[in-house]
Amino acid sequence: MKLQTQYLIRLAEKGVRGDGRKGEEYRKIEIEKNTIAKAEGSAKVKIGSTEVVAGVKMDVGEPFPDKPDEGILITNAEFSPIASPEFETGPPDEDAIELARVVDRGIRESGAIDMKKLCITPGEKVWMVFIDIHILNHSGNLIDAAALAAVTALKHTKIPEYDGEKVDYENKTKPLPLVHLPVTVTTAKIGNLYVVDPDLEEEDVMSVRLTVTTKEDGNVCAIQKSGPDGLLLEEVEKIFKLSIKKGNEIRKL
């Protein structure tokens, strides 16, 4: 491990990454829509060999008292032990919780879903949107893959019919009112090199990373710094600009 760290840091000094990518280059991104027939919406996203599936389920429930005329969004992530030797069974650990909360924040704060349109009877009945993120293979940068899978799944979500008593999951017609497309971009710092989309080896050696979710108008909706080092203001500004640029590229996929 130590040797690998030294090797990647030495490469970084020359501006090179372990797998030959440029600093601003993502691995190949593949998106498959509606892969799960029973879900209201779903998507499988691959970034390199990292593989994540997100599924959206909907149900009718009671609104929160402070937002009686808005739908409810709940995001959860499972790091299944199938995906990595590091993952264990049991309740979500701090990494799974952080991932779900960062993905949730990007979607919620950007106003991606028009929550008011998910109200059925104010104060009584609203649609609840559950986003569940399942990691299938962990090869680094799970947050970006999970966020992209979640937003893609929402984009293809169809709301089931509801007659006031029962939800008819066999008949789904209306699309979910998705009004924005937030995209999440993670940049890691290795030595003095900034790399987007860190792979597993890079995540092991990075000192710090910054995850930034942006909207199509360039606004910033969520920020999360992680990792045991700090960042200078100039570094943060540089990563913000890079995140907007890469976000726009990914949004076109």
Binding site: R105, R108, E109, S110, G111, L210, K215, G218, N219, V220, C221, A222, I223, Q224, K225, D229, G230, L231, L232, L233, V236, F240, K241, I244
Partner: peptide, 16 residues
């Protein structure tokens, strides 16, 4: 002293 930002989180909808 080192001018490093060690915690940075944000939720909202603001310009760069």
């Amino acid at each position: 002293r080192t001018k490093q930002i060690t915690l940075l989180q944000m939720d909202g909808d603001i310009t760069l």
